[in-house]
């Protein structure tokens, strides 16, 4: 195993453990929602890293369309898988937070609906990419991923543009919004931990996808007698 991967894994472990400690033992209990608000410290960072992963799909898609190099296509697809994984966590933890606070698991408000649409878009992207082989399929998926990413700013801005049941933004929101220092510190630690986790999972996923692609190419050339 490469030394860089071991170091990255160690830092991720430290970051995630620190986030867990801060979420349960350092951050104070929120006054109105109580203990359930502690979901926030993993729910928000999971959403954040899913956006980052979809940004990689966007950048990877553009780079692939410009250069035609297959590693960009592999990177975009790997990031799409990791992004869907994190967004799934968001869509599972969100309703578990909503139920005791709103008394319903789900409501069709702007933030929830745009998030679900984003998830469906990238599920479609993954299905499309895996079902279409060859350069043409990769190009089509790249365009789909680039367009799909346009839903990310919509999800981000949804609680600013529309009246929703979802809590207002605590960072970069209106005056009077914000977090107490221990809560903000906890959120920052969790954001760092989750970002490291994203990098680690993306790195591993990309390496495996690359090896699969190389092996597939090798077998194809072998069968055609080119090797």
């Amino acid at each position: 195993m490469k030394k860089s991967l071991v170091i990255l894994a160690a830092f991720t472990y430290i970051g995630m453990t620190a986030a867990l400690y801060a979420a349960f033992l350092y951050a104070p209990t929120e006054r109105t929602m109580g203990e359930i608000q502690r979901i926030f410290y993993f729910h928000v960072p999971a959403a954040w890293v899913s956006f980052l992963a979809f940004a990689v799909v966007f950048v990877g898609g553009i780079a692939f369309l410009r250069t035609g190099k297959s590693h960009w296509d592999v990177l975009a697809y790997s990031a799409g898988e990791v992004g869907v994984f994190f967004l799934t966590l968001v869509l599972v933890t969100g309703p578990l937070w909503a139920k005791p606070v709103w008394n319903v698991f789900w409501t069709w408000d702007a933030r929830l609906t745009t998030s679900l649409v984003l998830w469906l878009i990238f599920i479609a992207y993954l299905m499309l990419r895996s079902s279409l082989a060859g350069e043409k399929g990769a190009r089509f998926a790249a365009v789909f991923g680039i367009i799909g990413f346009l839903d990310v700013p919509l999800v981000y801005m949804s609680i600013r543009w529309w009246r929703t049941l979802h809590p207002a933004p605590v960072l970069g929101g209106k005056s009077g919004s914000g977090l107490e220092t221990p809560m903000l510190v906890t959120l920052m630690i969790a954001l760092v931990g989750f970002t490291l986790l994203l990098i680690l999972l993306l790195f591993i996923n990309y390496k495996i996808s690359r090896a699969e692609k190389d092996l597939e190419l090798f077998e194809k050339e072998w069968r055609n007698g080119e090797i």
Partner: peptide
Amino acid sequence: KLGYLFLAYSAIWTGLFIFLLVILRR
């Protein structure tokens, strides 16, 4: 509320575990 909190964090660890299993299978 504590039960829902437990479920949410369990979902995260379960998700991570499944992700690692899929990688292991590949």
